[in-house]
């Protein structure tokens, strides 16, 4: 029989109520583990769409010129040839663009992810300080480069994997007291393949064997270094001096 269930039913006996209570207790106790966490790429996509929707739309003096041009292009005698020309240009541009999606900006993403970690919006998928288990987790999640575990005077809380432009990246989170250190690792190969991109100042620093430090007041401190072919971007709410004290030089 296929029908909708009537809305009101008798509540049953005391035993049923006890089972009811037991199920409710069990579910509430497991609330956090039963929730599916938002994948990193999904969260970023939503945040980006929100940023686009909520971002400021400054009016520039050139806007009036564009408005006039737009009105002119809307005239049918101009619009049809213009549309054909635009189509031809787009076809040409697409045929020349081999990459498809734009490269992931590692620099900006590191800050954005750190913010998500601090706010609790980004949850660890593998919560352990066991680096062997984390290596296995990363490898099993599609990270195809050797993840680097620096010597940090903070507790390793675990890791999570993101997929950007079809490439898997490893992320680690450390904690010390009330402070968080977030580490984003990307392989040089993904930068070379233009799947990911790195700010030119940082690239120059790394290419000349330097470490890159920068502080964004109210956002975090960024520390970037390179270990073999892995670029490591660490972000923390600590100031540069305090954050640098956490990392053991030899280990980098």
């Amino acid at each position: 029989m296929n029908m909708n269930v009537p809305d009101e039913m008798p509540m049953g006996n005391e035993r049923e109520q006890q089972i009811d209570d037991a199920v409710a207790r069990m579910l509430r106790a497991r609330r956090d583990t039963l929730r599916a966490s938002v994948p990193l790429d999904v969260e970023r996509r939503i945040r980006l769409s929100l940023a686009e929707a909520t971002g400021p739309k400054p009016v520039t003096p050139t806007e009036n010129v564009f408005s006039s041009l737009l009105a002119w292009f809307k005239r049918p005698i101009v619009a049809i040839p213009a549309a054909l020309a635009a189509l031809a240009f787009v076809t040409f541009a697409v045929s020349r663009n081999s990459g498809g999606a734009p490269p992931v900006d590692l620099h900006q993403l590191a800050y954005a992810n750190f913010s998500s970690v601090v706010k609790g919006d980004l949850s660890l998928v593998k919560t352990t300080s066991d680096t062997t288990a984390l290596r296995a987790f990363f490898a099993g999640s599609g990270v195809d480069y050797p993840v680097f575990f620096p010597s940090v005077k903070a507790e390793l809380k675990g890791g999570v994997v993101s997929t950007d432009n079809g490439h898997a990246y490893a992320h680690l989170v450390y904690e010390i007291g009330d402070h968080t250190v977030y580490l984003f690792e990307a392989d040089q190969a993904s930068i070379d393949a233009r799947i990911a991109s790195l700010d030119t100042v940082i690239t120059n620093d790394l290419n000349t064997g330097k470490w890159h430090w920068e502080e964004r007041p109210g956002t975090g401190t960024l520390f970037v270094w390179k270990s073999n072919n892995v670029v490591c971007l660490a972000v923390s709410d600590l100031r540069t001096q305090d954050m640098s004290a956490l990392f053991t030089l030899e280990a980098l």
Partner: peptide, 15 residues
């Protein structure tokens, strides 16, 4: 009342 009723039955199904 419908919420209570559905919840009650849902928990039983889970059990």
């Amino acid at each position: 009342g419908t919420v209570r009723s559905r919840l009650h039955r849902a928990r039983k199904m889970l059990a």
